[in-house]
Design a protein around this nucleic acid. Sequence first.
DNA 1: TATTGTTATACTCTATAACTATA
DNA 2: TATAGTTATAGAGTATAACAATA
Lengths: 146, 146
Amino acid sequence: MTDDAKDDTIEQLNQQLRFAIGRVYRRFRTLRAEGELGEAAMATLTRIRKVGAQTLTELADEARVAPSSMSQTVNRLVAGGYLARSADPADGRRVLLTLTDLGRHTESVTHARGLAWLDGQLQTLTPRERAVLAQASDILSRMSEN
Amino acid sequence: MTDDAKDDTIEQLNQQLRFAIGRVYRRFRTLRAEGELGEAAMATLTRIRKVGAQTLTELADEARVAPSSMSQTVNRLVAGGYLARSADPADGRRVLLTLTDLGRHTESVTHARGLAWLDGQLQTLTPRERAVLAQASDILSRMSEN
DNA sequence: TATTGTTATACTCTATAACTATA
DNA sequence: TATAGTTATAGAGTATAACAATA
């Protein structure tokens, strides 16, 4: 295989992959039911449910957004009663975000519902196709760290 | 393998995949340079470049967004001089969207630049990993049609 | 009546710039 | 000075509802 042929393959894969990911992402987004929390809000609740109380900077870094963006997402969640702000006793500049009962319950219910469509799709695949997606997930996660 | 074990695998894949796709999509989005067109606008220009003049409904269906959403994306593109509206001689209700010279040029340049990051990432993968991503792209594209 | 498209309005998500409070 | 966080402001993208024009 010449370098040119290899570049062609990569160019083609690039476009296929970007197109496929955009479509699936938008598909996810349209699954959101009336009155349900948006992607960023849900991801924030899920993160705190998984790892416990987080500071604003921790959440912003993990989501790869600006601190002000996360501050506004947190504002909406606090206003809705899903998150509570509390002072960090060890450092007065820090604010610890924790789930309220409503936040914990909403995260659990919405998470389960959000998985339903993808579950249905995955059920229709062959085991081999699922294995391909599992490997692709690993590769994509690694890539997005750069 | 029992049914329960199979369900566990799918549940795990579900979460991995959704996480991976969200991360890569957001990574794409942050690549956008100052003053460049956004994802939806660029995708619209690219679609017209590939298949020629399109009506609003065609564009909305392909992108899987509401007609009013596409109308507003088109509004921004027409206001910026990237697209031109013209009447369909065969049906007075229809509006045909075509690229202007600026639109064609911008699509070409921005498209090339947008591919750069992903190209770099793909170059670092093994041929086998790239094959996995190519297969995954197909599977994901098929899935998002449902 | 049905289809095509637009506008009004509102919400989510994001960013930059300017700011306060604490270390 | 540096770090943590907030607010003001702006813009992209999306949706629903109400509407006009044409088929």
